[in-house]
Design a protein around this nucleic acid. Structure first.
Length: 545
RNA sequence: GCGCUCGUAGCUCAGUUGGAUAGAGCGUCUGACUACGAAUCAGAAGGUCGCAGGUUCGAGUCCUGCCGAGCGCGCCA
């Protein structure tokens, strides 16, 4: 149990004894100002109405009556805050416990129902671009953070290969393919075609591998084959990029399999039989407005084909049937209208309303030389995730993406990212790790072998560093609960700062054996937490830089 | 028009149930390497937290209105 939790419990106990009052919870927090103690509480102020007494008087009473073995000193300050300082013995005990936990520090035992996390889910109609990169970095780190917080996570990538996107890709490739072979492929709408250079590349590969075998302009069958080929190429390319960015998935789920298994048809029939679908103007509608959506949605179009809603509902029902307790979809903010309608459909199918959670990731705005770059896949004016990694490297790319909240729009200045990539904050954090590794090399000690620290007075810089280290489990738990990744980089930068400050003032390798042992313990703990934290972000923790 | 989200330093961003003097990085300026890595540290400058009200002992945080930006409101996904 953390100091926060223990102190909070002690305070409730003290208040129960002193006033006979049972408070629901006592809020304890780390003050911004080190002069305000290691922990502080505003309980006397926050509960002034309950106590019906002057907050300062309550604070004095509580501070005087508190019995908490790890607290050395409690002081009343300001209008009624109580500030607490830990005893050196308790701090050393915590440091020892941290070292003992090793790489499991900050992790909770896995329990509860597994969560299915779906992210990226880019359709295989081209390479991943920088916005997909943000989804990949956020999703993968979120999965790691959820796992650290004790949730079992299954990662899934869903892609549409049943609709007309693939057909459009096929036509785009077919036109180029025909050109290569001095022929012409007729298309209904030339302006709708994809134009990126990858289209021509796929066409070249098609010609190289299969020659003129599919050169049957206008043939639907040939187009289907070209679509298959193109889709496979794009998917392979996407998987390669994901692997490069250290983004993992347990399963790639394709839309087509839902048609093949009959799941789509089943869902539509079930909605009909449950009385939540009706025919109108030649189409079949889902009565989603009965379940909180703004309006009803079309499930089956007038021409008999399904809208995306049908397979999507089949997919999400499949998630539910597979026994997951929660499904979290990571989607682009331009899909904001999606959650209410898909949730409505699920409720209509008898799936609990809170089964599906959605995290919307905001747009990535690209800038080049101060000017915004309009991204268009069809026009081919986009920057790929691969190109970004080429420029700045995997670590910078991943760190940069998750450093800011996914709920906010991100301005990505390419020139700045490239120019400043050697001053990126990720190196600041990595440097702290490498610096510590260097100390241990010099000392001839294995960091992992340090399991305890001798007690003794500690300097303010050491205390500040240690308190920061002890805050890590709370950071992970909060990040998981709020499904945010960015608190982790923020924390790591603060931790790195605490270490650099400590390092500047105190020498680790000194003659006094007890002092050296304690500082090595502190350094080993810092190295451990930095490595764990960076790992949650998919970033390397280097021994040397 | 209706709905949702957002607005914090020149730039990119943090800010823990509402708490004490709103913090980092980059950029600018000034210092610090003859013992463990200067990819570092110390300091300075830089803010009406979009604007105006309200609730509260206390508001960047909660409520209302306004201004500005983005997204949604398809038989597209």
């Amino acid at each position: 149990m953390s100091f926060e939790e223990r102190l909070s419990a002690c305070l409730r106990e003290t208040i129960r004894e002193a006033y006979g009052i049972e408070l629901d919870g006592v809020h304890v927090e780390r003050p911004n100002d080190a002069g305000h103690g290691d922990l502080a509480t505003n309980l006397a102020l926050a509960n002034a109405k309950v106590f019906k007494r002057n907050p300062r008087e309550v604070a004095e009473t509580v501070a005087g009556a508190l019995r908490a073995p790890f607290v050395e000193r409690a002081e009343v300050a300001g209008p009624g805050f109580i500030n607490f300082w830990f005893s050196p013995e308790a701090l050393h005990e915590e440091l020892g416990a941290l070292l003992e936990r090793g790489e499991l520090y900050g992790r909770r035992e896995v329990s509860g129902e597994p969560v299915l996390l779906e992210y990226v889910s880019a359709n295989p109609t081209g390479p991943m671009h920088v916005a997909h990169g943000r989804h990949a970095a956020y999703g993968d780190s979120l999965a790691l953070i959820l796992e650290a917080s004790g949730r079992a996570v299954w990662r899934e990538y869903y892609f549409n290969d049943g609709g007309n996107q693939i057909r459009l890709l096929a036509e785009s490739v077919a036109v180029r393919y025909a050109e290569l072979l001095d022929a012409e492929w007729p298309v209904s709408d030339p302006d709708a075609l994809y134009r990126g250079s990858y289209v021509a590349e796929i066409a070249r590969e098609l010609a190289r591998e299969h020659g003129g075998r599919y050169l049957e302009p206008g043939s639907e069958e040939a187009l289907g084959e070209i679509g298959e080929f193109s889709k496979e190429r794009c998917m392979a390319d996407i998987k390669e990029t994901l692997a490069r960015a250290r983004v993992r998935f347990d399963r790639y789920f394709n839309e087509k399999s839902l048609y093949d298994s009959g799941a789509v048809g089943e869902v539509v029939e079930e909605l009909k039989s449950r009385g939540h679908a009706y025919e109108q103007e030649g189409a079949l509608w889902l009565a989603s407005s009965e379940f909180g959506d703004d309006k009803d949605r079309v499930l089956v179009k007038g021409d008999g084909s399904y809208t995306y809603m049908a397979p999507d509902l089949a997919y999400h029902r499949d998630k539910w049937q597979r026994g997951f307790g929660t499904a979290v979809d990571v989607l682009g903010a331009d899909h904001a209208g999606y959650p209410p309608r898909i949730r409505a459909g699920l409720v209509a199918l008898g799936v609990p309303e809170d089964f599906l959670d959605v995290e919307l990731v905001r747009l990535v705005k690209l800038f080049r030389e101060g000017e915004q770059v309009k991204v268009s896949k069809r026009a081919g004016t986009f920057v790929t995730f691969d190109e970004l990694i080429d420029e700045v490297g995997e670590d910078v790319a991943r760190y940069f993406y998750v450093r800011s909240s996914h709920r906010n729009e991100m301005n990505f200045d390419l020139d700045l990212a490239i120019e400043q990539s050697d001053e990126n904050p990720v190196f600041y954090v990595q440097y702290a790790h490498a610096r510590i590794a260097s100390i241990f090399r010099r000392a001839g000690v294995e960091p992992g072998s340090v399991k305890s620290a001798p007690p003794g007075d500690i300097a303010p810089e050491e205390r500040a560093l240690l308190l920061e280290l002890l805050d890590f489990p709370r950071i992970v738990a909060n990040a998981a609960a709020k499904r945010e990744v960015h608190p982790v980089p923020t924390y790591l930068e603060t931790l790195a700062t605490r270490f650099h400050q400590f390092y500047t003032v105190h020498r680790v390798l000194v003659d006094d054996a007890a002092v050296q042992e304690r500082r090595l313990a502190l350094s080993a703990a810092t190295k451990n937490v930095l490595a764990i934290g960076l790992d949650l972000l998919g970033v390397e923790a280097p021994e040397k830089m």
